[in-house]
Amino acid sequence: MKILVVGANNFGQKHLSGIKGMEISIVERKPEVIEKTVEKFKIENVYSSFEDAIKDRFEIVDLVVPHYLHKEMAIKAMEAGSNVLVEKPIATTLDDGEAMIRASKDYGVKFMVTDQYFFDPSVRAAVKFIRENRIGRINTIIVRDQRFFEHGGWRTDKDQMGGGALIDGGIHFLDTLLNFGGNYESIHGKSIHGGSILNGEDNTAALFKFENGTYGLFFYSWSYRNPPELPAFEIIGEKGSIYEDVKSRTSWEVGTPVRTVYGDLIVNGENANVKKYDVYTAEIMEFADSVKNNTEVPFPPELALRDLKAVLDIYKL
């Protein structure tokens, strides 16, 4: 199977390190990035132009590009007959996301958003335990992440991002919250600019009310200097609790054998002994299996659209 990775720098390196047993080509213009990528990975071809690259036949095109390019590039790849992976968010607007889903059906190709948080073993196990009623009726879910953004690049540009911190990193944590809580009926909250170099917002606090009566507390910040180490999620039920053990998180560095998003899962005070695996390999290779076997993709794009809707609902407040 042949895969084309568009954008080999930064997160592109993590995608490349998750690919197993495929012929890999890349689209990249920066000489220093090309050099390190060819040295580190077995690269079949290097293209400087996306349009030239998709003239060749690739079973999978993996787009690791700024948010505002997702729709245009994804649909071009679909027109060329490729199955498409795109980094989160699915797009910057619901209309664009819906157009991408329609195009995948029209052209008869698979389409999925790569969100490693959805594939995290602790998240999958927590969802299973909730469905098994392990801690009884859920009353409160807390999901949070706080850090300080000091980087440059396109993420500082509100137009390229489609917003600020929430649509970029925060959407991961909204996915986790919604996977635990289900459909929501209302949101109260606000996104503000709290002091980073972003053009867009960098601080969000929100209260979700879910259709099942559960409440969700959400906090996400790129303007939090010297943040404390806190569990990224806590699920509080009438018979017990589930939360993340922050001390057991793994490194995301390329070369780390098993990379997870969250730490171990603590259920009713005890380690749940969830089997760990590499989330970057899981998201790409499970998608490749769906292409090979003509089965449903593991992370339906409709769920990625759900996550984007939550972001945009908060932005409206």
Rank of each mutant, 00 (worst) to 15 (best):
G169D: 07
I90S: 12
I54G: 06
K76A: 10
I171S: 14
V86M: 04
W154L: 11
R137F: 09
G169W: 10
I101V: 15
T37L: 03
D106F: 02
K128V: 00
Y68W: 09
A53K: 08
P89F: 06
K128W: 06
A77R: 11
S48K: 15
M112R: 04
T114A: 15
L166C: 05
D145A: 00
I135D: 05
D145Y: 07
K128S: 12
I130T: 04
F148D: 00
G153K: 10
T37N: 10
A74S: 15
F149N: 01
L174G: 09
F119V: 01
A126K: 05
S49V: 11
D52L: 01
T92H: 07
F148N: 03
K105L: 13
F118L: 03
E39P: 00
K36M: 05
I43H: 01
E98N: 08
T92I: 15
F129D: 00
N83F: 14
A103P: 00
F58G: 14
T37Y: 06
G81K: 07
F148H: 09
E132Y: 01
F58W: 09
R131H: 05
A77G: 05
D96Y: 01
E51Y: 05
K110P: 11
D175I: 02
S82R: 02
K110F: 09
L94W: 01
T93F: 02
V113W: 11
A77D: 07
D96N: 12
M112K: 04
K128D: 14
G162V: 04
D106C: 00
E59H: 13
H172G: 04
T140D: 12
K55I: 02
I167M: 08
D115R: 08
T92D: 05
L94M: 11
D56Q: 05
D62K: 04
V143D: 10
G164H: 07
E44K: 05
W154A: 01
L69P: 00
R124P: 00
I75S: 06
I135V: 11
H67I: 07
G162P: 08
S49P: 09
L69K: 04
F111H: 13
F41V: 03
F118N: 02
M100V: 03
H70K: 14
K110W: 12
M100W: 01
A77H: 11
P121S: 14
I90Y: 14
N45R: 12
K76P: 00
G108C: 10
L69V: 04
G162M: 04
T93P: 02
F173Y: 15
I60W: 13
G81I: 05
V38F: 03
R134C: 04
L174K: 13
I75Y: 07
Q160E: 10
T156N: 15
A74Y: 11
V84W: 08
W154D: 11
A91R: 14
E79A: 09
I101G: 15
I167N: 14
V113T: 12
K88I: 10
I171P: 02
E72G: 12
I130P: 09
K55L: 13
K36H: 04
V113A: 06
R147M: 06
E51W: 02
G169Y: 13
E72N: 14
H151I: 02
G170D: 03
G163D: 12
